[in-house]
Design a protein around this nucleic acid. Sequence first.
DNA 1: CTGAAAGCGCTTACAG
DNA 2: CTGAAAGCGCTTACAG
Lengths: 339, 339
Amino acid sequence: MSGHRATIQDVARQSGVSVATVSRALRGKANVAEETRAKVVTVADRLGYQPHTAASWLASGKTMTVGVAAPYFDVWYTGRVLAGVERVLSDAGYDLTVYAAETAEQRDRFAARSASLQTRVDGMLLVDFSPEESQLARLLESRITLVAIGEHVDSVNSLAIDNVTAAIESVRHLLALGHRRIGLLGTQDIHLIESPALTARQAGYSAALRDAGIDPDPALDIDCELSVEGGAEGFDRLLDLPGHPTAMFCLSDETAMGAMGRARALGVSVPNDVSIIGFDGHDLSESFGLTTMCQPARRIGEEAAELLLASIAEPTTPVAHHTVPVDLIVRESTGPPAH
Amino acid sequence: MSGHRATIQDVARQSGVSVATVSRALRGKANVAEETRAKVVTVADRLGYQPHTAASWLASGKTMTVGVAAPYFDVWYTGRVLAGVERVLSDAGYDLTVYAAETAEQRDRFAARSASLQTRVDGMLLVDFSPEESQLARLLESRITLVAIGEHVDSVNSLAIDNVTAAIESVRHLLALGHRRIGLLGTQDIHLIESPALTARQAGYSAALRDAGIDPDPALDIDCELSVEGGAEGFDRLLDLPGHPTAMFCLSDETAMGAMGRARALGVSVPNDVSIIGFDGHDLSESFGLTTMCQPARRIGEEAAELLLASIAEPTTPVAHHTVPVDLIVRESTGPPAH
DNA sequence: CTGAAAGCGCTTACAG
DNA sequence: CTGAAAGCGCTTACAG
């Protein structure tokens, strides 16, 4: 009414019952006379009453909030996962609080807050965030319900693709076309933050080559940023190499499309002069004619959120690691090497 | 220690002071003996004490959390804005809670929660979310500190580009090249949720045409989705038209790139057969050689967050509307019509 | 500089 | 089915 928030006291007073009854009535608990409930609801509506968030949290111990720690909210993969997570959570009545966790410092700060996060969220999603031992220890100690996305973390529920196998399959596609010198683009975060997902893809790349009797050439490992710009820059670096590769395996589609854009600008023909393969299944990969290893990012977000909700509801469920299938989509950006 | 969270009581007991002093010491308030503070900090560290989130909120009235309501977290623009917002907020010690607000129903649900949001966040960012009258009323009534991004909302601080002028400039570029039949792609959300930003761009499109003595042809207004897929579909629809346009103004870069991808697949030459211009300045627009109206999405997010923090700190500041400049970048996707 | 006390606004056994 | 009361864990005037 008159400018200030209505409290449960106001509702109680105006409906002539106790605050305990108001609480029960409004939260749909049993043991409230239908008549009483109707009266309380009417008054609450009229006053525009909604419970004080912090007061409910404090009294009930539940926050109806889930946190998600992820790197780079402006990257396609993260955005997709986030959209999936958000849909499932909001359907279930949960709010979503986001935490940037790309740099080592951010991750540390995040883990250091574990104790207070425990009282801030009911559960936490970790996207491409493989905590260091000390970070994991804090997180586990705080007993926050956790689900890891994109990486298998010991003693934590997780949902991820098999990056090694996916990378092997990608590189084998290039090998089968006849390529022998295959570059690797986008390994910067392997060195910067030891991203396990990327490290696994790198391992798959090496394994596939070795399996074909080829020794991975360190000179072909380009540690450019995993981004459009990084891909463009990496493409240049790879082209400058004496005896440049005839194919490039890019660790993300954004990197791959950056490389293709650079090729277009330079008049380098894809795939005739150089084949390019990406990783993600980005919306735009089809428009680019990009061959890519498709992962269902949005679905991953949804499933992870469902897993988290289930494990919030049933905290004793044993830890499980789920693997999500991927799918190689061959398009025009890959072909046999020239001559 | 022994499995359970340490409370301020534990710290008080073990450091031999009152909880009031612990609170002051840990929150860096003045009027605490340096010696006392040191002791308290030591004990708190040893116990891994961190304040209970809800208890602080309830007692202090501050949540150190900001909310952002935005449509489509997996769209480039939203992701960029979000990344900018996140950076500024986390630097300032604020958390970020996200609310999806794309459908009319989501927006309604969101506005209906105003009273509880007031106790959940210290301020709120509204991205491309021009509330209906009743929604705005609730929001204002709840006295949440608001900043609108992308659209000017009456009686709310805002930060936006000038969509009308930007669209006029885009279309004039095509007119100057000699185009007379210019299609418009991506107007679906104008009809679905009356997106004011898109409506403004549409208005600019019409104004530029009329100004050149051309009557906008409703048949050239394609209400496809503002997305890669939508662009591809819209491209087909436009091409199927008898006497199809020689140029297409796409309301987002994703739409434009979807259209370009379709052109590539069909063997339609851009810009020789048809010119395409986008809107956004998407990372990949350069790789595509796409002419586009560039808006500094990340910067917009950062500035809006700064604005919000300032107005949380100084709630009495008068309402202001800020306009952010845009920049037309001409690339290869636009050229003179073939005739 | 420090402590005792009130208060923030709910939820939840516990009685009845 | 309902109410009185304790308790959730802090912060913040108010005294001293």
